[in-house]
């Protein structure tokens, strides 16, 4: 355990001393602040637009950090042969991989938290400015920072932002899975390929529900054809159906989490199927186990 923590902290150090992280973070903060500005374009439902844009920015950039920082972390160790000295130390390879994973996860989560704080301050700033006697922008910003801090500690403190922290927790859960994939691919493939794989899986995961819907459409079509021709459904099911069905089962269902975010935006409440949390953890553990299986057996360059 001590060894995992040591490697995780070292990985975190490596990530936060990486310039790419700050580029991503700056872009994220710009987009989050932009969500407030963009929301002025709408004549109604301003709160929804802010929430939707902010959540998307946090989600996209958290995923970007997981992918861009994550895929090169393990690979760099192999490429630069720093792994040689690590492996010769009295720790298991699995400990090394888990340490890398937790270090990356820590990086992603810390960044999510930073982005969330910016987001909260911005929302409270807009709420403050909406009041008629706000007492100048300096006061408003000061109050907003205070309120954001309070919301961060006790999320239902303010009605307008009560929904944010639960959504952020769900995003963290989602990123847990994405990070596991980044580590998995990084453990046996080059950064460019890992990035492609991870991004593809992330996309497929988010489209998982659409794939399922596509499956249902194809099944309905087959059912109609079967009824018409008096044959079994199996005979009418196209290869596309089987492929889509297979794809829907094999890809991670990240849609389960983004649905929560969408609901939070349009209903101002969060209801997560409790088993989704278990699902997130189980999937992550499975992916990490697979990564360890590969890593344990491989020769390093």
């Amino acid at each position: 355990m001590k060894e995992i923590v040591a490697i995780a902290l070292n990985t975190f150090k490596e990530a936060i001393r990486n310039r790419i992280l700050y580029f991503i973070l700056v872009f994220a903060v710009i987009l989050i602040l932009l969500s407030g500005v963009l929301s002025e374009l709408t004549y109604t439902d301003r709160g929804k637009i802010i929430l939707s844009f902010g959540f998307t920015a946090i989600n996209v950039f958290a995923a970007a950090i997981a992918v861009f920082v994550g895929v090169s972390l393990v690979y760099n160790e192999l490429e630069k042969r720093t792994i040689y000295t690590i492996v010769s130390k009295p720790i298991g390879r699995w400990q090394f991989l888990l340490g890398k994973y937790f270090g990356l996860l820590l990086t992603v989560w810390v960044n999510i938290i930073i982005m969330t704080l910016v987001f909260l301050v911005m929302i409270h700033y807009y709420i403050g400015m909406a009041a008629t006697d706000h007492g100048g922008w300096f006061t408003v910003v000061g109050k907003a920072i205070g309120r954001a801090a309070v919301t961060f500690v006790w999320w239902p403190a303010f009605k307008e932002t009560a929904v944010i922290m639960p959504v952020i927790l769900v995003t963290m859960l989602e990123m847990m899975m994405v990070t596991a994939f980044a580590v998995l691919f990084s453990s046996f493939s080059t950064p460019v390929l890992s990035m492609m794989f991870t991004v593809m899986l992330f996309v497929a995961g988010r489209l998982n529900e659409d794939i399922t819907r596509f499956c249902v459409t194809l099944y309905d079509r087959a059912l109609a054809a079967a009824l018409e021709k008096h044959t079994s459904i199996d005979a009418q099911l196209s290869p596309a159906y089987h492929f889509a069905d297979w794809a829907a089962h094999i890809t991670p269902n990240l849609g389960a989490f983004h649905k929560v975010v969408e609901q939070a935006v349009f209903e101002q409440k969060v209801t997560l199927w409790p088993w989704s949390i278990a699902y997130g953890f189980l999937y992550t553990i499975a992916v990490l186990a697979l990564a360890i299986m590969i890593f344990q057996r491989r020769n390093f360059k």
Partner: peptide
């Protein structure tokens, strides 16, 4: 163990 042409964590 000291590997050949070692490269270490250069950010440390």
């Amino acid at each position: 163990f000291l590997p050949e042409n070692p490269y270490f964590y250069d950010y440390l």
